[in-house]
Design a protein around this nucleic acid. Structure first.
Lengths: 163, 163
DNA sequence: AGCGGATAGTTGCCGCAACAACCAATGCCA
DNA sequence: TGGCATTGGTTGTTGCGGCAACTATCCGCT
């Protein structure tokens, strides 16, 4: 017996579904235009830029970017071809691969970050009051509990490194 | 001078970005598995099923599904090949095309809807309290104001048709 | 009437994502 | 130490989304 959505529930869901459809494109187009990066590529470079020694294992990088390993593998491949990342086989466990940000990759993030952050502010952060920002955080936690508990765990403890 | 994100802002943004990455996949996989439809295809069929005469102009359908016209055109093409939609050139304006849900298309929505709604409940609606649902609605409105005002207008006035 | 611009859609091409199949190294246990 | 399941990644194929170019119709103006 299906419980259909009532008007309140539908309202919330349609808004979320619309955002799901619209926001990625808005993020992509700025990054593509200004830095020739996809949002996902930016995320990958950004995570590496904050990691100790600018290096992460593929599987760790995958979990921090919410990607599957095959997807990440392809993306890292392309970023390596462009000279932003180097792949180093891990000596202690030779199945594993470490992805390391190159100097050029670091420069790329540094160049891309300001425009991207401006865009995120313009599209999201600055649209919301501090209360709404907190509400969004709480709502996000609820949804991530179901979608991917380990993502939630990692996001919850995340602190921006001091630059 | 870029204003970087502080810890609260980053927290909210990372949660939203993660949801952007994870939720679409979770929606897709249920629909693909149970009904061999993408989430976007479902949305298209669903909008048609609620329209008068089960018919909408391509451009109107595009705006209700937050799609570009080229994208919609491709998708409708495939749905037509599968027998779920018929395209009829509009007599009053022969540039325009009307997309109409066929009987088979109607049956498809009817068959797919319960599982999809269950999934939406499981992933989103039932994870949130009534207050959070209202907060999500308000936050969604704020973001849609910037992302796509006409989408917001349409979503705001939307009411589920009585079945 | 007829020309120019705007509107409505379609088509072709390219790039990325999902999935499955695959390979290689490791750990475990007989 | 040999066999086997597990883990960590990579590769190949397929299908969808985005963009740009194109066609066809309509509208306005002279």
């Amino acid at each position: 017996m299906t419980r259909w959505l009532d008007d309140r529930e539908i309202g919330a869901w349609m808004r979320l579904a619309s955002i799901l459809e619209l926001l990625p494109g808005a993020l992509e187009s700025q990054l593509r235009r200004d830095s020739d990066l996809s949002h996902f590529e930016y995320w990958v470079l950004s995570m590496l830029s904050e990691a100790p020694d600018r290096t992460l294992r593929m599987s760790e990088l995958a979990s921090r970017t919410n990607a599957t390993l095959p997807r990440l593998s392809h993306v890292v491949q392309r970023l390596e071809d462009r000279g932003f990342i180097a792949r180093v086989s891990c000596p202690s466990d030779r199945r594993a691969t470490n992805a390391q940000l190159t100097e050029a990759g670091w420069d790329k993030v540094v160049q891309a970050a300001p425009g991207h952050v401006d865009n995120v502010r313009d599209l999201v952060v600055d649209r919301l009051t501090p209360e709404e920002l907190e509400q969004l955080t709480a709502i996000g936690d609820r949804l991530l509990d179901r979608l991917s508990p380990c993502t939630k765990a990692w996001v919850t403890e995340y602190r921006r490194p001091t630059r």
